[in-house]
């Protein structure tokens, strides 16, 4: 898949079942969409595979994500 297409896929996977997540991810794309590195895109793809409620709890800091290599992406999502 081309980078363009991969970003399109990630954008669509940022459409969630909970408004809270839609809003956080919308801000994320506005802030970081243009500058997303390949490594970050790969991390985001993993993070977007999480279940709605789990992802929200992690963004709120109620829980930590199990995989340390995704911590950087979670921090970005928490900051926006």
């Amino acid at each position: 898949m081309s980078r363009e297409a991969e970003l399109g896929r990630l954008r669509w996977h940022s459409r969630r079942g909970m408004l809270e997540l839609d809003l956080v991810l919308e801000r994320f794309w506005r802030r970081h969409g243009e500058s997303l590195s390949e490594e970050q895109a790969a991390s985001l793809a993993r993070v977007l595979e999480l279940e709605e409620a789990d992802l929200w709890e992690i963004i709120c800091g109620r829980r930590e994500i199990g995989e340390p290599r995704l911590q950087g992406m979670i921090e970005l999502l928490r900051e926006v």
Partner: peptide
């Protein structure tokens, strides 16, 4: 479905 089934809005 537009999205994976368990991401449908019923999840909220």
């Amino acid at each position: 479905s537009k999205v994976f089934p368990t991401r449908s809005h019923t999840v909220a």
